[in-house]
Design a protein around this nucleic acid. Structure first.
Lengths: 218, 218
DNA sequence: TAGATTGTTAATCGATTAACAATC
DNA sequence: TAGATTGTTAATCGATTAACAATC
């Protein structure tokens, strides 16, 4: 099922946030950054930041910090974001629209070149600068443009069908925002996003927090 | 900064997915489920599933499985989702629209009762059945309706300002989809969603996977 | 009774944190 | 030289996995 074990998941998840902040700082004209500053920004410990950054192989200057340019380049290379990845997005609803309009992706080496939708009324339109194409064209388009990544934003009920078409067309990694566990061959990688997971975390934090507050009041 | 340490994060993140699947099964008329089936669905090990479920306190029947009704009730209670939480959403763009339209939230005890936007043209309209209100009304609305949760879907540049208004109005937990680290008082909890984190994970999996495939070809 | 599954206890593994020498 | 920060090594902690007795 394309299950690839990845270590240091928490670190990898944080890398885009470092990258985002480092890009901001570069725009502001800063060229050096030290861990205490990043730690404050990320709201995590300094040691965590240093361990995180060490995964990229960059070395900083003791007493000074890290070169921002080096860090940016190293993070992008570590994630493979220095090479452009072409992707198609399927499901031109509001979530699809939000994703296609997120311009940070360009910075992350992700280029969403077209959106697909089942609705004939949407086909032929332009969404945030990208063409919306009828679903029947998906397979041919992916083959012709040698697309390797698919972003799935369709309702759960049709997700597996669309997934099958993607796989058949040659797509090898799928970013899945539909609420289903997709079945794919072993050489296809799926990353499933479950936004409710974040809500669950927030809910538990609230409960713990209220419990603590109650304790203090006793 | 409202940092609450939460253990068993991976388990908590998975709970909504169990809940979703269990609800599906209940609708299909099933009343008992065993770990092997859930493990296949989640694409994780059986032992993981059992450990995950044990956090809720439910006990299954050896040789048989768990009662689906019991599991659903226990997960909802563990997450505090058996009690309705009223929330407002700020930023009626495409992401906001996607979130407000997600009907799964009702099942999760989350009731988004209104959306707010700076754009006067949007104020007075209805989005997916919820009123869109001008931002200036936010503080009064939150106070009047005793809203405790805010969902932040505004551009990064204005996120801190909106966050400040939320906090001032009495909101105590914020689900933050803006790409910034919010500064909040100690008694306010923030859950930040970084979708690019998932993309980073997918990217690394791809790199590892390709590396493995190359090895095999040698 | 046989087969299946639960749930506990122990063992392994990895991630986080602490301490500190090395460096600018 | 003094102050600050890096990066390594060791210690702690928690999560994952394995083994297996208990139960239906």
């Amino acid at each position: 099922m394309g299950r690839v074990k990845v270590q240091k998941m928490p670190t990898i998840r944080r890398l885009p946030t470092y990258l985002y902040r480092l890009n901001e700082m570069r725009k502001e004209g800063t060229s050096i950054v030290a861990t205490p500053e990043l730690a404050r920004y990320m709201d995590i410990g300094e040691i965590v930041v240093r361990k995180d950054l060490s995964i990229t192989g960059v070395t900083g200057q003791p007493g000074v910090g890290y070169k921002i340019d080096e860090l940016i380049a190293a993070i992008r290379e570590f994630l493979g974001w220095n090479v452009e990845t072409k992707a198609v997005l399927v499901g031109a609803g509001s979530l699809g629209s939000a994703l296609i309009g997120y311009d940070g992706f360009e910075e992350y080496g992700l280029s969403i070149i077209a959106a697909f939708d089942r609705d004939p009324a949407k086909a032929g339109t332009v969404m945030r600068g990208r063409p919306v194409i009828d679903m029947v064209e998906l397979e041919g388009f992916v083959r012709n443009h040698k697309i390797s990544m698919g972003i799935l934003c369709v309702p759960a009920a049709v997700a597996q069908d669309i997934c099958d078409i993607m796989v058949k067309s040659g797509i090898r990694s799928i970013w899945n925002f539909a609420n289903v566990a997709l079945k794919v061959p072993a050489d296809v990688i799926v990353q499933r996003e479950v936004i409710a997971g974040g809500l669950a975390l927030l809910s538990v934090k609230r409960l713990r927090h209220f419990a603590e507050t109650d304790d203090e009041e006793e």
